[in-house]
C-alpha cells in the first residue's frame, strides 16, 4: 500500500531533541500490539497528546527529532496514533530510516517556523509544505532515491517482498 501523497491537516508542534524515550517510553516497547504503543505515545512530553490527536494529523518538531534508542516502536506508535507525516528541522538518523521503513513519511525542513495548530498542506511527492495559517511555503530536503523507492512501496517490508533484494 503506497502512502497518501497529499495531506491537508493540523500541526502538533513540539521542540528540539525529542528522544525516543519521550516518543514511547522503554517500558511500553516490549510488545507487538500497536494499540498499546499508540495509547502511550508522547505521554511524558504531553499527557494530552493522545486525546487531541486526530487521524491524519501532522507532527512538527525542531532539531534532532527521534534521538536516542533504535526502537522502531517510536515511528510505529506515531503512525498508529494517526500521524500522517512528521516534519522536523532535522532527524536523528535511526528514527529517520525507521520511519521510512515502516511507511511513515518524514520531511526535513531546516528553517521551518510552523506554529502550534497551523493548518498545513503537504505535497509529499514534491516535498512541498504550505503553511496555510502563516501563508508560507517550504521545500523539504530531497530523500535519497532508495528511500523514495521504499516509501513508494509503503515501507521496506513491501519493497523487499516485491524486489527480493536491494537495488540502487
Amino acid at each position: 500500500m503506497a502512502v497518501k501523497t497529499n495531506i491537508k491537516a493540523k500541526a502538533h508542534v513540539y521542540g528540539n531533541h525529542i528522544d525516543t524515550d519521550r516518543i514511547i517510553p522503554g517500558k511500553y516497547t516490549k510488545t507487538l500490539d500497536l494499540s498499546t504503543l499508540a495509547n502511550h505515545v508522547l505521554e511524558d512530553l504531553d499527557p494530552e497528546f493522545n486525546k487531541i490527536v486526530a487521524q491524519g494529523d501532522i507532527l512538527v518538531a525542531g532539531i534532532n527529532f527521534g534521538c536516542g534508542s533504535s526502537r522502531e516502536q517510536a515511528p510505529l506508535a506515531l503512525k498508529q496514533a494517526g500521524i500522517s507525516v512528521v516534519i522536523a528541522r532535522d532527524f536523528a538518523r535511526i528514527f529517520f530510516r525507521n520511519a521510512i521503513n515502516i511507511g511513515l513519511p518524514v520531511l526535513e525542513i531546516s528553517d521551518h517556523q510552523i506554529q502550534k495548530g497551523a493548518k498545513l498542506d503537504v505535497d509529499l511527492k514534491n516535498g512541498i509544505v504550505k503553511d496555510l495559517t502563516a501563508n508560507i511555503s517550504y521545500e523539504a530536503t530531497k530523500l535519497p532515491d532508495i528511500m523514495i523507492a521504499i516509501l513508494n512501496e509503503g515501507g521496506l517490508v513491501n519493497y523487499l517482498k516485491k524486489n527480493g533484494n536491494y537495488s540502487l
Binding site: 533504535s70 526502537r71 522502531e72 535511526i94 530510516r97 525507521n98 521503513n101 515502516i102 515501507g155 521496506l156 517490508v157 523487499l160 536491494y166
Partner: peptide, 10 residues
Amino acid sequence: CGVGSTDLAA
C-alpha cells in the same frame, strides 16, 4: 551501525 527492526530484518 545501529538500525531499527525492519532494517535488521532486511
